[in-house]
Write a protein that binds this DNA or RNA. Structure first.
Lengths: 207, 207
DNA sequence: GTCTATACTCTGATAGAC
DNA sequence: GTCTATCAGAGTATAGAC
């Protein structure tokens, strides 16, 4: 447990906990107001720490935001990565839709953080979009294209099929207040969306 | 033409033109950064007017934003209003999808302004969402429900069907940079989307 | 109608006591 | 590690000359 070396890196438990508290509060604020609209004062208030204390744990506002985005991208792409070229085509895509909707339901703040960033022209993640993301989508699109060629999936432009999954699932997180305002009380948006999207993609994809 | 009354309201041509210049610049800035992230300095620079001059035409930043939102809502709901209960069900819905996608293509800034507002919890248009918008959607959902009952349209939850049209069409405006980054060069996203969405909704809706 | 100058507040970041 | 105090710059808005 003891760490005798003088200039060591590992964080203490209290440091870990405070960093997490800050990142959690920052996610609240950044996801609601975007990078420029968010203030350290708000993050300080939500986290319960003082503003200088925030800047003891992170060198700058920019750095807190960058940390959140870095963690996000991995979580965000996991469901698509899990699409198995060896599985049953329709079942695989439906499972992807299901996982992506779960992500919207369980991590709506992350969805909105990402939406804010892309809406603002993605200045901080453009490289990731044109790099990792494009490679992954191209790769999985090729899998879809092959399934279509073999007649095991309805013929559709694979990239746009993937866009449609993103659009439909993220809508329920990003436009949550609109969805609830229009549905009115007594609804469970995500449960209804889960059934609806299952029907939609089944009809669309079964050859 | 002459207006002899001393304290009259009508704006001169130069006033009209300057107000439009300001609103156009403000749309650029607000749609990219959201309300809090936008600054009067940016709007002044884009419009080519001085900052105090902005505030000669509008009493505050808040008021410029409010003006944009008010104009927006009408434009935004027009395509759904035009859905004709007397027309052919599948054709009517497809026409709605088409019109909504055209709106995304021709007014992407308006789409992003709206998206920013809803992402931030819609503090300034909550009343409109729960009022006018909900009434309109409830009304058109009833039309869809009747068509489904008559067997002229596939059975689906009408509200979620409308959400899916919003999600799929707005995605191409709001996530434009992501769509282009993933597709790579040599694509026309809106032309491809138009064909894709036609196929998707035709398969989904034909009973 | 438009500009310069400026008042006043907020925001990100730092210094230094404890 | 955490706080109070504070700075420099940016932000909205106003006053007043032209």
């Amino acid at each position: 447990m003891a760490e005798p070396t003088p200039a060591a890196r590992p964080l203490t438990r209290i440091q870990q906990k405070n960093r997490e508290t800050i990142l959690n509060a920052a996610l609240d604020v950044f996801s609601q107001h975007g990078f420029r609209g968010a203030t350290l004062d708000q993050i300080a208030e939500v986290s319960g720490l003082s503003k200088p204390n925030l800047l003891y744990y992170f060198p700058s506002k920019e750095e807190i935001h960058a940390q959140l985005l870095a963690t996000l991208m991995d979580t965000w792409l996991a469901p698509l990565r899990a699409l198995d070229p060896g599985g049953d085509p329709v079942a695989e895509v439906l499972a992807y839709v299901h996982r992506k909707l779960e992500l919207s339901r369980d991590y709506p703040r992350e969805s909105r953080l990402f939406a804010n960033e892309v809406l603002q022209g993605a200045p901080r993640i453009m490289a990731g979009l044109a790099g990792d993301l494009k490679r992954l989508v191209d790769d999985k699109s090729e899998v879809l294209r092959r399934w279509m060629e073999e007649g095991r999936l309805a013929e559709l432009p694979p990239h746009h099929l993937i866009f449609s999954i993103w659009a439909l699932t993220q809508h329920y997180a990003d436009f949550d207040v609109q969805v609830r305002a229009v549905l009115g009380p007594g609804h469970d948006p995500y449960a209804e969306a889960d059934r609806f999207l299952d029907t939609l993609f089944r009809r669309l994809l079964v050859p």
